[in-house]
Design a binder for these strands. Structure first.
Lengths: 292, 292
DNA sequence: CCCGGGAGG
DNA sequence: CCCTCCCGG
């Protein structure tokens, strides 16, 4: 029996036990609020080969239950991309990936709600870990979106490179057309001091977790106090996974509505789906009345 | 017998063996070129307690022979500051220090040539190593100077903090009054990539070693190929110690004339005065004809 | 006071 | 994929 009440995008929260609740489907998609965009961002730790026989089906169940409009993934590996392509998920989702070998990012886009117009992969010129920025231009309920994901340079030693990559992400967000809402979600590996060193989040871009009042219950997305996947003998809690939004200057008005962590169901193996919690983030996107 | 012909400021280079050459003194100071400013910058490694009985007298001999107008020191420790205060050096020099405990920077100012008007210590707010910036406003042959020294955050891991400190140094140099020549010399611990990351040396400030055409013979001020003080089993050569100049915009015209390394005499103990070479830098400072 | 890697908490 | 220490090169 599930120990966790999984959130889902259609209903917001489930009132009934999982097994009695009709799962969301392509039929119910059409009834969903056209102005609520649901984004899931998750590093699913494809580099950890342990317990994949439990962790991977668990991940697919999360995807199906949550049924986000946009899923931003990090640390996919080729067998996972293939597994997604073969799974029933693909009846409803389109997959794009940032690479095809090693480990890489990807996006799942709910076909019934989101239309992919173009995608772009921008390599970081000085990454030593093969990292890049995956961007997709989407149409959603008449709104123009750019969504982006990345897995920024890892580890303490990657600090300088990571900051350079973050600068590039912010630059891309700022450069998007004025009529586009821009949402970035990814595993940033950021330490707070690094954002401080960069002079803070730039004007025009907001950290969604901060916008929502810095809720403690979704602060730490990588948390060895509560997540034993890495089997670390120490308590380390960091906010590695972050969502940034740059509102459109014309056309649409975006408002973050909620953020919650997912993946906190402990599996039978005693571990979790990933060493990162996923971030489920809901946005209200409304037609912006012209100020002209 | 000395293996090295020590440079000195009065004569520029000695033509005779050391023992036959009359040492510079307060009497000869008055005969020195009033428009040539001689600056010695040296991390004298007070943290290394080995062989101090040889290294310290050697350092004092260098000071006496060179007789620089301004000596910028890093890694002084309290016994050294006390030793200087008690030594005959103090008949001719004034000492100011950046701190009194731990290890710290200091300046020796040749009384007969340089007049100290004020000194300031600016702490780096986020240093984890107690580092600061020591600044002195001087009058020299009718020229107005600000001279500065610092020992920027050490080690590879101090990269970000070191860059922040360097930014502060450059800012202070840029902010000095237009009629002042500004000279910074210190142990910057810089890697070239860090200056590159900062966008290079800012407009209006020059790296004196670069101005002089990047002479190879004074590139590496910290050099385990030739200096065995640290007993490192590997070859590492870095340009940690740097001199920056910001010319006055009015009043005086400063031109770097020469740079050479000092401290390369091996002592009887088989080691050197410091694990850093010192930088002896000569500047020509001329009355600037007004452009008004 | 170099660098990288590995162990241990 | 935390951090610090230690070691060898």
């Amino acid at each position: 029996l599930p120990q966790e009440e999984p959130p889902s995008c259609p209903s917001g929260s489930l009132e009934q036990p999982l097994e009695n609740h009709p799962p969301p489907s392509s039929k119910t998609d059409l009834k969903r609020d056209p102005n609520q965009l649901c984004v899931l961002c998750w590093n699913i730790d494809g580099l950890d080969p342990e317990d994949v026989q439990e962790r991977w089906p668990s991940f697919l169940r999360y995807l199906m239950r949550i049924r986000a409009d946009v899923v931003l993934l990090q640390e996919l590996i080729p067998p996972m991309a293939e597994g997604l392509e073969k799974s029933s998920i693909m009846k409803d989702y389109e997959l794009i990936v940032g690479n095809t070998s090693g480990y890489f990012t990807g996006m799942l886009l709910l076909r019934s709600r989101v239309k992919l117009l173009q995608s772009t992969v921008v390599n970081y010129p000085t990454t030593e870990m093969g990292r890049n920025l995956l961007m997709a231009q989407l149409s959603f309920s008449g709104h123009q979106l750019w969504v982006m994901t990345s897995h920024l340079e890892s580890c303490k030693d990657g600090s300088q490179e990571r900051m350079n990559q973050l600068r590039r992400v912010w630059k891309r967000m700022r450069e998007a057309p004025d009529d586009h809402t821009v949402i970035f979600g990814g595993d940033t590996n950021l330490r707070d001091r690094e954002v401080k060193w960069l002079g803070g989040v730039p004007e025009g871009i907001s950290d969604v977790w901060e916008l929502l009042g810095k809720p403690e219950d979704c602060r730490f997305t990588w948390d060895t106090v509560n997540n034993n996947n890495n089997d670390l003998p120490v308590r380390a809690r960091l906010r590695f996974d972050r969502v940034y939004v740059r509102p459109a200057k014309e056309g649409s008005k975006v408002t973050p509505v909620s953020m919650q962590l997912v993946g906190q169901d402990r599996l039978k193996c005693g571990r979790f789906t990933s060493d990162h919690w996923g971030i489920l983030c809901k946005f209200s996107i409304q037609l912006q009345l012209s100020t002209n």
